[in-house]
Write a protein that binds this DNA or RNA. Structure first.
Lengths: 216, 216
DNA sequence: TTGTGTTTTTACCAAATGGTAAAACTTTTC
DNA sequence: GAAAAGTTTTACCATTTGGTAAAAACACAA
């Protein structure tokens, strides 16, 4: 009874388990984004949340579990928006424009998720490999086929659909992953929405002019 | 002849020492590329070279020294080839084509260096920040100015030079950094020269069609 | 109040890690 | 061939890290 809680860690009085877990995942994402899996200590994450390491382990029994949850959260977000083939009536330019903007929005809204993903990929995707094969690849092949159709129909010039996707992905993710470099070169402290808007304008413009047949 | 006996530490650049250092740097590059700075243990590097950790420390007194050497090696390579403004008589399309191919060659020849660089940037460039400001930024601004001139001269359409560079950098580096993903989606065990050639053809084609004025 | 399930804290620990100190061994130089 | 310089090995060590075990504190219903 006399043992008072030193106000060191201010718990939210009504923080439910789910809410706390969300806070943990968010903090973990930030940490993994910065230093990758092996470079991130459980204690660092716990500190960021304001709980003890052992308490963190109570919620996520080990580091890998937490890491997988973080990855899954990002991937779920991505799958939601990364769909390419959606509206069969939309034009190729509309779909591509929408796709580029969607990916850029993700980089803007969830840069840390993008960075965790980048770490994982550079690492050789030890955790994500299976997912990439089972989920990303089929989607990719479907989208590639659609681009090929556009080319057959004379809407697009004859370009490699695969490399088109690689380029769009790279160009959109770079604003999250390499934000430091871009900020520095643009002379800004932090990338603003405006910068992402500029990027979207440039990218859609160049890509469409670059691949659409008979473009002015 | 003249070997002085001044008590000062006088080491001569023994050939074997230089060779061993090169092997160490190469192994360290591979290791840092995979797991980043904090995720890489000195012992892992030593094992890869085939020497003891203490012996490694004899050559590189601490991890940061080794890391900086690895970074510097890559940056030196990059600076050599990453020059944009070179021949004042070359056409814009020639220069851009050459630039894209050069960057893709670097990704092909030194993917590990690219990955170390990627880790460092995602980390917020704690070590490289100064270098980026002092070396990369001036070069960048010079190149941006040149692109702007091309636009003024009516050679290029009015596109953002900054974002053009960001896109080219991202698109070329992705073949090194995210090789795992690309391999997987292309269904290849390892990226071959052919794949980089395809990437070069696609990228130069799309970029030039995308930004050159009056392109067919 | 008390019993029960949940959450947090306290106390440890074994393994890994970056690094020091110095002995032992090898090569070079005179 | 011995001193000097250079290299490798051996022996440690303090700290960090992921993780275990269990006690303590808390929430809440009967």
């Amino acid at each position: 009874m006399s043992t008072r809680k030193t106000g060191a860690s201010q718990r939210k009085p009504n923080a439910s388990r789910v809410q706390l877990e969300a806070r943990i995942i968010s903090a973990a994402e930030k940490a993994f984004a910065l230093t990758g899996y092996s470079g991130t200590a459980m204690e660092t994450i716990a500190e960021a949340v304001g709980i003890s390491k052992q308490n963190l382990i109570y919620y996520f029994p080990n580091k890998e579990t937490l890491y997988r949850r973080v990855l899954r959260k990002t991937l779920d977000m991505w799958l939601e928006k990364m769909a390419f083939t959606e509206d069969p009536d939309a034009s190729a330019t509309d779909i591509i424009t929408h796709y580029i903007r969607g990916k850029l929005e993700l980089s803007y809204e969830n840069p840390d998720g993008s960075r965790v993903f980048a770490h994982e990929l550079i690492n050789g995707a030890p955790v994500l490999k299976d997912y990439l094969i089972s989920h990303l690849k089929p989607q990719f092949e479907k989208d590639v086929a659609l681009v090929r159709q556009w080319t057959s129909a004379g809407v697009l010039r004859d370009v490699s659909p695969e490399h088109l996707f690689f380029t769009i992905w790279a160009a959109t993710q770079t604003y999250a992953d390499f934000a430091t470099q871009i900020q520095l070169l643009l002379g800004k402290k932090k990338l603003q929405k405006k910068d992402f808007e500029d990027a979207a304008l440039f990218l859609t413009d160049m890509v469409l002019h670059g691949i659409v047949a008979n473009s002015p």
